[in-house]
């Protein structure tokens, strides 16, 4: 089955187009999980639709910079994401936006001051197909339920010092359904799947940090200063370096860097808060 607009598309409807765009996405019920990183993807896609429409689908943004991502609550299959994006600025070079995702009116994720560099659409996708899709999601809406979940991603630890540091290698799959949608003419490993693995890695290091109080756990609450410097093509591998950067009281910061052939391709700082177990 053609994965275009199915395998990695997370906006079913745009209920209010424009600079303060609003939209919806129904998380399919039949999948095992919907990682919080994909909520960020949904927000980014909502903003991307606005940016593309403004340039008649000749330009589109790609993931670039996310200074602040607040992880407010997990989401679950079957829930409906209520998406809001406010475009701060948009020109031929970049789009800047703030986004908020909610479930039943409760915020689950917030993005602040995200920046997406603009690139030529033709290199990545069919402008006409994008325009038709935009018309659909601004009108009747896309049929929900197309997303089948993320396939297992091959990541192996090559070093782990709990509470201090870790090294891991992620083998970007050579083929995957999501490449048909991200993007049809130039498959690129999604930045939000990179974010998903970054959170996993950071959590493994955080596990080993002594908790400040009993009956608490380290919970990731912020992803700060995230930047993607290069596209990750199918079939490559990324080397991750993770280290505890700071710990103060009930808060710790884990820094993650990804390299490909010794060049830094991405980095983030993840902030964990020690929170009482439910």
């Amino acid at each position: 089955m053609d994965g275009h607009f199915r395998a990695f598309s997370f906006v079913d409807r745009i209920t209010r187009p424009g600079g303060q765009v609003r939209g919806l996405y129904q998380i399919p019920s039949g999948i095992a999980e919907f990682p919080i990183a994909l909520v960020a993807e949904a927000c980014g896609q909502l903003s991307a639709w606005t940016a593309m429409a403004a340039y008649d689908f000749k330009l589109r943004p790609v993931a670039g910079i996310a200074p602040v991502i607040e992880l407010l609550a997990p989401v679950h299959p079957g829930q409906v994401l209520e998406l809001e994006s406010d475009i701060e600025s948009l020109d031929a070079e970049a789009v800047s936006y703030n986004s908020l995702a909610k479930v039943d009116g409760t915020p689950v994720l917030r993005l602040q001051h995200c920046v997406g560099p603009m690139v030529s659409v033709e290199e990545f996708d069919d402008p006409q197909a994008l325009k038709q899709r935009f018309d659909l999601i601004c009108g009747a809406g896309a049929a929900p339920g197309a997303f089948n979940g993320i396939p297992p991603l091959d990541m192996k630890f090559t070093g782990l010092e709990p509470g201090a540091s870790a090294r891991a290698t992620l083998h970007v799959p050579a083929t995957a359904d999501f490449f048909a949608d991200h993007f049809p003419r130039r498959p690129v490993f999604p930045g939000t799947l990179f974010m998903h693995k970054v959170l996993e890695l950071a959590a493994r290091v955080a596990e080993g940090v002594p908790l400040p109080a009993p009956n608490t756990a380290w919970v990731p609450r912020n992803i700060n200063d995230s930047k993607l410097r290069a596209f990750m093509a199918p079939g490559g591998s990324l080397e991750f370096e993770v280290r505890l950067a700071k710990q103060a009281g009930n808060e710790l910061t884990i820094r993650v860097e990804a390299k490909k052939e010794n060049r830094i391709t991405g980095h983030s700082r993840i902030v964990f808060i020690a929170e009482e177990l439910a």
Binding site: G64, A94, H113, V115, P117, K227, L228
Partner: peptide, 15 residues
């Protein structure tokens, strides 16, 4: 620094 960093710096300076 790379071009993405220049973009990042410009936006941060603006804010």
């Amino acid at each position: 620094a790379e071009s993405i960093d220049f973009l990042d710096i410009i936006f941060r300076l603006e804010r």
